[in-house]
C-alpha cells in the first residue's frame, strides 16, 4: 500500500563508513548471493558469459576521486557502497500504482511485494539513489530488503540476524541498527562521526547514514610539532657511537 505510514515503530537501517570502506565489493556479492537464493525472484543475469553481461544487484560500490581545492593537497579516492536508504519520505512508495511498494510500519523497511508488482519501473524513476533495479528475467522490481528474511529469522543463530552485507563486510564498514533509538550503535556512530544524508535536498529523509572520510594527509602540516622528535643526537657515525656509549652507560 503506497501511502507512507505516519510514523514507523522503529527505523532500521545501515550506517556506511566511508573512512573504512576499502571498496572490496564483498557486500555486493554477498547481497547478490543471499537475495538470489532468498526473498522473491532470483537476481538474474543476462549474457552472463557473453559480450554484454548485465544483471540485477541490490547493492553496488562506486568510487569517487576527490580533489581538494587547495592545490598542494593530494587527490583522494573514496569507495562508496550504495543500496536502498529506506527513506522516511520514500518517493518510490507513493508513486507505485499497484501498492507493491510499501514501507513497513514496524521497522520502516521499504519493500516490494513482488506478487503485486507490474514492473512499471516508476518507483525506480522516483528513487534519486538508483536503489531499485527491474529484474529482466522476472519482470519485477528488486531492491534491498534490509535482509528482512534474515534480521528476524529464528532459523538463524541470533548473532546472524543481520543483513548479509553487514555480516560479510571484512572491514566492518557497514553497521546495522535502529535509528529511532538514540542509544543504538548506529545512532551513536552517526552522532560521533557526523553521519550524513545523501541528497538531502531531494527531501527523501534517508534512514541510512554515511560517515564521511576523516581528514587525510595531515602529517606534513604537523611537522612543526613533530620536528623536535627528530632532534639529532649525532651528526655522523662517530658522534652516534659516542651517544650510544653514553646512553648505554645510563641503562
Amino acid at each position: 500500500m503506497t501511502r507512507l505510514p505516519d510514523r514507523t515503530e522503529r527505523q532500521l537501517g545501515l550506517v556506511i563508513d566511508l573512512d573504512t570502506c576499502v571498496g572490496c565489493h564483498a557486500c555486493v556479492i554477498s547481497c547478490k548471493g543471499w537475495n538470489t537464493e532468498n526473498y522473491g525472484a532470483p537476481l538474474s543475469d543476462q549474457q552472463p558469459y557473453g559480450a554484454d553481461p548485465s544483471g540485477t544487484f541490490l547493492n553496488r560500490v562506486h568510487s569517487y576521486e576527490v580533489t581538494p581545492l587547495v592545490e598542494s593537497a593530494m587527490a583522494q579516492l573514496v569507495h562508496f557502497p550504495k543500496s536502498c536508504l529506506h527513506c522516511e519520505d520514500a518517493p518510490c512508495v507513493t508513486v507505485c500504482p499497484t501498492g507493491a511498494s510499501y514501507k513497513r510500519v514496524e521497522d520502516g523497511i521499504v519493500l516490494v511485494n513482488e506478487t503485486d508488482c507490474i514492473g512499471c519501473g516508476l518507483c525506480a524513476w522516483a528513487c534519486p539513489y538508483g536503489a531499485r533495479e527491474l529484474d529482466a528475467a522476472a519482470g519485477v522490481m528488486k531492491k534491498c530488503t534490509l535482509c528482512i528474511d534474515r534480521i528476524y529469522n529464528e532459523n538463524l543463530p541470533e548473532e546472524d540476524r543481520l543483513p548479509a552485507c553487514v555480516r560479510t563486510c571484512p572491514a566492518g564498514a557497514r553497521h546495522f541498527g535502529d535509528f529511532s533509538d538514540p542509544d543504538s550503535h548506529v545512532s551513536r556512530l552517526t552522532a560521533e562521526r557526523g553521519g550524513m544524508d545523501l541528497m538531502p535536498e531531494q527531501g527523501t529523509k534517508p534512514v541510512n547514514k554515511y560517515l564521511p572520510p576523516r581528514p587525510k594527509d595531515q602529517l606534513e602540516s604537523q611537522l612543526g610539532v613533530l620536528a623536535p622528535l627528530l632532534a639529532p643526537v649525532a651528526e655522523d657515525s662517530r658522534g652516534f657511537l659516542g651517544w650510544l656509549d653514553r646512553t648505554l652507560d645510563k641503562i
Binding site: L18, H62, S63, Y64, E65, V66, T67, P68, L69, A73, A75, Q76, L77, V78, F80, P128, M196, D197, L198, M199, Y210, P212, P213
Partner: peptide, 13 residues
C-alpha cells in the same frame, strides 16, 4: 549525492 563536496571537487572514478 556523495556528501563529499566538503573535501573538494568530486569526480566519478
Amino acid at each position: 549525492a556523495t556528501g563529499l563536496g566538503e573535501i573538494g571537487t568530486v569526480r566519478a572514478f
